[in-house]
Design a binder for these strands. Structure first.
Length: 341
DNA sequence: AATGCGGGGTC
DNA sequence: GACCCAGCATT
């Protein structure tokens, strides 16, 4: 019999008293748990909550989700970002519905094979839904463990991922893996925060190495910084009565397959084309993504200039916009047009 | 091993 | 601005 670590006992007792009441913690359904985990990938709990409610309401079973169209799913996902998650959500729903008869597999290995399910999500579903002993390693876990044990191996290196994953497995309470996993993530979210962690109310302050040396803020260590490139988008509003022209984006770029206004992208801020028929820009936004800064200008013009790829353009009724998945940038443009009119 | 992929919150 | 968030897929 393996003894439960002091670390695990302390965080679990803290968790029992201090955790938030979140909807996906009140279910055993692998389907709901999977939904919540995919929604929460690189996404804060407060941002994901509304989407979790929308998805469980619109698609109460994995069969409902499997039978939905990809566009319907993307449309429900609109505004949450990382849209490949929505496409993989659909793939996995269809796979589970057809190949597993609507029942999610109950082994880590099979879970890991599902589209959009990686090591973190497979461990989360395995431990929360099936009580299997797999330790989760997410951003919270990296932070808590790097501080408690003063591990300075970069978390964005292969060596670091392996090291933290082994450490997490060694600490896991194999008799309560689900609660243990919830506890370490909740501690990272509520107490052991990136900036100004609340060490004085931490249940493991006494055994925390970084706290002892006052080094909390120096963990975890990352080796790479993300660099941002600038892009210049010129969007054209071409309308007639209740119709306007929209364009579907292509693959291998941001917002794959989503809809926007006809676009001319330029390598520099200037739009050096014959644009005598263009209005002065009616709106301009800069839109910040993780790796790109989009400088967007919106013009009114009566017809489609030759610089636009018309093969992916078509006229739609303005009302149809509600049914098309739009990037936040485009959605915001229409929102503000609405207000101004 | 390195890179791309959103949108929003915090300091 | 810089950093982070219940990461994953692709190259």
């Amino acid at each position: 019999m393996v003894q439960t670590s002091a670390f695990s006992l302390l965080i679990q007792n803290w968790y029992i008293e201090n955790h938030r009441d979140l909807p996906w913690r009140n279910t055993d359904s692998p389907y709901f748990i999977w939904l919540s985990e995919v929604i929460l990938q690189q996404t804060r709990v407060v941002q994901g909550l509304d989407y979790y409610h929308k998805f469980t309401r619109l698609f109460p079973t994995v069969h409902d989700l499997a039978n939905a169209s990809e566009q319907e799913i993307l449309n429900t996902w609109q505004g949450l970002g990382y849209y490949s998650r929505a496409r993989n959500l659909h793939k996995t729903a269809k796979h589970v519905d057809q190949q597993y008869n609507g029942v999610f597999p109950d082994s880590y290995k099979e879970l890991l094979s599902l589209p959009g399910v990686g090591p973190y999500t497979a461990a989360a579903i395995a431990s929360f839904a099936y009580n299997l002993p797999h330790a989760v390693v997410d951003g919270n876990v990296f932070r808590v463990l790097s501080r408690v044990f003063s591990v300075d191996t970069p978390i964005d290196s292969t060596k670091g991922k392996k090291e933290f994953s082994e450490l997490a497995d060694n600490l896991l309470d194999k008799t309560h893996p689900g609660r243990h996993n919830q506890a370490i993530m909740e501690l990272g979210a509520l107490v052991c925060s990136p900036k100004s962690p609340d060490c004085s109310s931490c249940p493991i302050e006494e055994i925390c190495s970084a706290r002892a040396s006052g080094n909390q803020e120096n963990f975890p260590v990352k080796e790479k910084k993300t660099k941002v490139r600038n892009r210049y988008f010129h969007f054209l509003l071409i309308e007639e009565k209740n119709k306007l022209v929209i364009q579907q984006r292509k693959g291998k770029d941001i917002w794959e397959n989503m809809y926007q206004l006809p676009l001319i992208e330029t390598p520099s801020p200037e739009l050096n084309i014959e644009k005598s028929s263009f209005s002065e820009p009616m709106a301009s936004y800069s839109h910040q993504l993780s790796h790109q800064k989009i400088h967007a200008l919106f013009y009114k013009t009566p017809e489609i200039p030759k610089e636009v790829d018309v093969s992916r353009c078509r006229w739609i009724e303005k009302e149809e916009l509600n049914d098309l998945p739009l990037p936040r940038l485009i959605d915001r443009f229409f929102e503000e047009q609405e207000q101004d009119s």
